[in-house]
Amino acid sequence: MLLIRCPWCGERAESEFSYGGEADIRRPTDTDHLSDAGWGDYLFMRRNPCGPLREQWVHAHGCRRWFTLVRDTQSYRVLDQDVVPGEARMDEEPA
């Protein structure tokens, strides 16, 4: 089982988390002019790399907040992580 560090709650077992897949996929803004291929690319095509991947997790059975991990999909080791923009950790002073 993966040991995942929630930015707010600390290290918890993987079973407390739900997976949100590849991060940084942006919904196209100019949807009126988007081709079928463009829609298909946004909806279905994925990088799926063998190596470092930026991915989304949510602490579903905890604080229920989203964050991003950089995890190696070969070794499963977490390399880096950050919070979703706009969210602040509890231990940080509001800006």
Partner: peptide
């Protein structure tokens, strides 16, 4: 999760 490690949780 995505993984290529031929092992799971």
């Amino acid at each position: 999760y995505l993984g290529y490690g031929q092992r799971g949780s």
